[in-house]
Amino acid sequence: MTFNIPNILTLVRLVLIPVFLVLYYLPWQYAYITAAVVFVLAAMTDALDGYLARKLNQSTPFGAFLDPVVDKLMVASALVVLVQSYEGSIWMTIAAIIMIGREIVISALREWMAELGKRGSVAVSWIGKVKTAAQMAAITGLITHYNEWVIDLSMVMLYVATVLTLWSMMVYIKAAWSDLIGNH
């Protein structure tokens, strides 16, 4: 493994997941806000590590593998605690299942397309980046439990992110469709 700046940032993000979880559940007045700050820091390292890997030409196989895994763990962890915290919200649960399910589907699709030598046809698109931004904003707001206005706005953003999640999944599946149905 190469210890370069992007890989170190990815590892920091991995370590921040349990820190986020512990902070979220601490019986402390500022637990939610502090957990939200840690989540935002983790999200910022995600954007920064990819940028630096490209800018400094420091992409590595380890980073290419670990970065998306850590991203998915971070988001799934946050969604799971939010579903538990907002236990009366069926819409939160549905959104979380769609988002986590999409990540499983797209990961499997990318792996399968890579086996066919066509990984580039399911590379990250602009819609995936917009989805991620909406998702991170929504999750951050929901983590804070700040006030009803922030929670309501964050729920709207969560629904926007859910629609973008489904849309981006369809874009990726459409790109791979001929290979999926066997029409090469």
Rank of each mutant, 00 (worst) to 15 (best):
A31I: 09
K131I: 03
K174Y: 14
A31H: 06
K55F: 06
A133H: 07
L153P: 00
I17G: 07
D46K: 01
M157V: 04
D46A: 11
L166G: 13
L116A: 10
A175F: 09
P6Q: 12
I8T: 14
M113W: 05
L9W: 07
V80E: 09
T60Q: 10
A123T: 08
V15C: 13
A31M: 00
L73R: 04
A134S: 07
A134I: 04
D49Y: 11
M155A: 07
L21N: 04
A78I: 06
T144Q: 04
F39Y: 08
W91C: 04
A64P: 06
L166K: 03
S154A: 13
G63T: 09
Y51P: 03
M113F: 05
A137L: 15
V122K: 01
Y172L: 04
D152E: 14
A53M: 03
L116I: 03
L164N: 02
T144I: 07
M113V: 00
W112I: 06
A95H: 01
F65G: 09
E115N: 14
D179Q: 15
V70M: 05
A42F: 08
M1V: 12
Y86H: 11
N57S: 15
G63N: 11
K118H: 07
L21T: 10
S125L: 07
V80K: 05
L66H: 07
D179G: 08
D49V: 06
Y25R: 11
M1P: 05
L180Y: 12
Y25H: 15
K118E: 13
Q135K: 01
Y25D: 11
G117N: 08
V163A: 07
T165P: 02
V12K: 04
Y172T: 02
V70Q: 04
T165M: 00
I100E: 02
H184T: 15
V122E: 06
V163R: 00
N57D: 15
V163T: 00
R13Y: 06
N7Y: 09
Q29C: 12
F39T: 02
V12P: 03
W149Q: 15
L158K: 02
V80Q: 07
W112N: 11
I151M: 03
M99G: 06
I151E: 05
M113D: 08
V40Q: 10
A35C: 06
A161I: 01
N183D: 15
L166P: 11
M113G: 04
L158S: 00
L158F: 06
H145V: 01
E103Q: 10
V22C: 10
V122Q: 01
Y24L: 08
V105M: 13
A76P: 05
W149N: 15
K55G: 07
I97A: 12
G101T: 12
A36G: 02
V12M: 11
T140Q: 06
L21Y: 09
Q29Y: 13
W149I: 14
L41R: 05
K129C: 04
T60K: 11
M113A: 08
V156K: 09
G88I: 00
M44P: 04
L41H: 09
A133K: 01
V40L: 10
Y51W: 14
K72L: 06
L166H: 05
T140L: 08
I104L: 13
F65P: 02
K118F: 06
V160P: 03
V70P: 00
D49T: 11
F65C: 08
Q29N: 14
I143V: 15
A35G: 01
S89V: 02
K118W: 04
